[in-house]
Simulated assay, not measured.
Amino acid sequence: MSRLLISTDLDGTLLDHHSYSAAAAEPALQQLRQRRIPWVLNTSKTLAELEPLRRQLDNSHPFVVENGAALYIPVASPLAPDLATDPTGNYRCKVFGPSRRRILLALEPLSRRYRFTGFSALSPERLAEMTGLAPGQAGLAMARQFTEPLIWEDSRGALQDFASELSLLNFQVQRGGRFTHVMGHCDKADAMTWLAEQYRALWGEPVTCMALGDSHNDIGMLKRADLAVLVRSPTHRPPEIPGRTDLVLTAEPGPAGWNSAVLAALQQLGLGT
Rank of each mutant, 00 (worst) to 15 (best):
H236Q: 13
P242D: 05
S2I: 04
N42Q: 02
G118A: 13
Y199K: 11
F162I: 08
T117L: 13
Q145W: 03
H18C: 04
Y91Q: 06
N67F: 02
S2F: 10
T88E: 05
L266M: 06
F63E: 02
V229Y: 11
Y199V: 09
P81S: 07
A84N: 07
E125T: 14
R112S: 14
R92V: 12
N217E: 06
R3S: 14
G176K: 05
R244C: 08
Q267F: 00
G12R: 00
H61G: 06
A189Y: 10
A141K: 10
A265C: 14
V40C: 00
L230C: 11
S155A: 08
D214Y: 05
A128G: 13
A256H: 09
H18V: 10
C93D: 00
G177A: 08
M221P: 07
L133N: 07
E108S: 08
R100G: 11
H216E: 14
T13D: 04
N59V: 14
A158L: 02
V95F: 10
G254R: 05
L71M: 11
L247W: 04
T131Q: 12
G243K: 01
E129H: 14
S19V: 01
R35A: 13
S233D: 09
D246N: 05
P253N: 01
A106P: 00
T147Q: 06
E252D: 14
T147F: 06
I241F: 04
A251I: 03
Y72A: 00
M221K: 01
E49W: 12
D218F: 11
G272K: 07
D246M: 04
S99M: 06
D226V: 01
A196C: 13
R175C: 10
H185V: 12
L127C: 10
A28N: 05
P62K: 02
A121K: 11
P27D: 09
A24V: 00
H236P: 07
H17Y: 14
L122E: 12
A80T: 09
A265G: 01
A228S: 15
W152S: 09
G257Y: 03
A163S: 15
D214R: 02
R115Y: 02
R113Q: 13
P98K: 12
R113N: 10
S123K: 13
A24G: 02
V64R: 02
L10N: 05
F96R: 09
G272N: 14
Q30Y: 00
L212C: 11
S164A: 15
P124S: 09
R101W: 03
S19D: 10
V75Q: 03
K188P: 10
A143N: 09
P87D: 10
V40I: 15
R92T: 12
Y20V: 06
